[in-house]
Design a binder for these strands. Sequence first.
DNA 1: CGGCCGTTTGAGGGCCGTCAATGAATGTGG
DNA 2: CCACATTCATTGACGGCCCTCAAACGGCCG
Lengths: 243, 243
Amino acid sequence: MTRTAALSESHDSCQHCRLRTLCLPDNLTKSDIGKLEGIIQRRKPVSRGASLFQSGQRFQAIYAVRSGAVKTLMPMANGDEHVSGFHLPGEIIGLDAIVMRRHPSSAVALETASLCEFPYSALEALSDRMPALQRQLMRVMSRELLAEQNTNRLLARRSAEQRLAHVLLKFSERFASRGLSARRFRLPMSRLDLGNYLGLVPETMSRTFRRLEEQDMVNIDRKEVEIVDIDAMKSLAFGTEGA
Amino acid sequence: MTRTAALSESHDSCQHCRLRTLCLPDNLTKSDIGKLEGIIQRRKPVSRGASLFQSGQRFQAIYAVRSGAVKTLMPMANGDEHVSGFHLPGEIIGLDAIVMRRHPSSAVALETASLCEFPYSALEALSDRMPALQRQLMRVMSRELLAEQNTNRLLARRSAEQRLAHVLLKFSERFASRGLSARRFRLPMSRLDLGNYLGLVPETMSRTFRRLEEQDMVNIDRKEVEIVDIDAMKSLAFGTEGA
DNA sequence: CGGCCGTTTGAGGGCCGTCAATGAATGTGG
DNA sequence: CCACATTCATTGACGGCCCTCAAACGGCCG
């Protein structure tokens, strides 16, 4: 049993879900949450490597991760794919499909994942009568936008070491806000995927991990990460030293 | 009088604004547009170099560019700033501020710009009673999200030449959808700003422009751009040749 | 005209990608 | 339970792209 198994929801209702405050039901009243639950489709878990939806597929629903982890992939014109994000429990997937009514990305489970499916037409209809839901949707989208902008800045201006330190700190925060340890956690993705996301080849990933270890900032054992010197990590990732 | 002056709105009403279909009023009925106009604050034009809002400032409104051009800047921990986007008439600015209720970015006019200001509380109140507006807001945010993901992919996986070709083609499209020429246009920003956006230093920008000229893909005269061989540009920017 | 900012050009170096090969881990089938 | 295949991770040598540093040039606005 892995650490992240602890991220599962406790019950089948949003009301008692421990991820509630990270997810769509945040800021809704008990009665509104009840109505939201009414439109949720429970899906059978997606097993590791299986895809939730494919790029190009018609958009019908957005999804919240309940347990496990998911990566999203954007096709590149030359055939291979760019990893556009990693999604932990409580996070919403599929918002980039709303404009085109078609998914621009594919979503693939990194480990067995269970999800809540929100059919989008039902969600629209519900939010017509529920201003709080509509505002929560806007907040979630704004949050995503901000996260993408931060990633842009990271990719445009930072070295490999800074990119890795940054992303490790972000995972630390995200695990912590889910009640897990900020110091020790297990990365759900391969170095290949993480490198793809960061714009780095696997060889560089390997060497960069090693350099962080040599500076006693982290201990790495396969996918297990221990943050040893968080201050040094922060000053590397965000610090005043230029790129 | 510059080329982009032609991008000004014709009248003071959204109904007759030639940018309507790119902007918030798209997909609204005539009557809904009338109500939307009711909350718009007209601002006096922002002159070149002046800022529309500053990073850290309380979020009160989103803005649509009416004429001119605007850049957005995110502060970096080390003091300097990352150019997170360029905004042409019809585009919406400030959506990244909704979650935190504070602007994460600053917005600065690249050339004298006039804007429509939508106070956000009024916009929320209005969209409570106007499902079409709410859906348009979601579409706009989704479009922004998609654009940021594309930028991520560009920064993570493409060479300087590919980045420049890509961004020039994108500007070409954006000008074309505003009724201007797709072949000849004037970039509203300095090479410094464009390079900052693309994660490239000015020296590299200069050399990369020159290389595109030497390959007879474009003609560059200061800020004036002429796309000569659009197919070659596309195959460079999106082509099957790897990064 | 003069100052300033933006742009260009050149020389040199460092980071990271490419290529190649080995090693480790996981999963599969016998 | 082990042999094997496959995927992932690591290590080293090498090269290229782009950054750094330095200087000169040009346009723009006062």
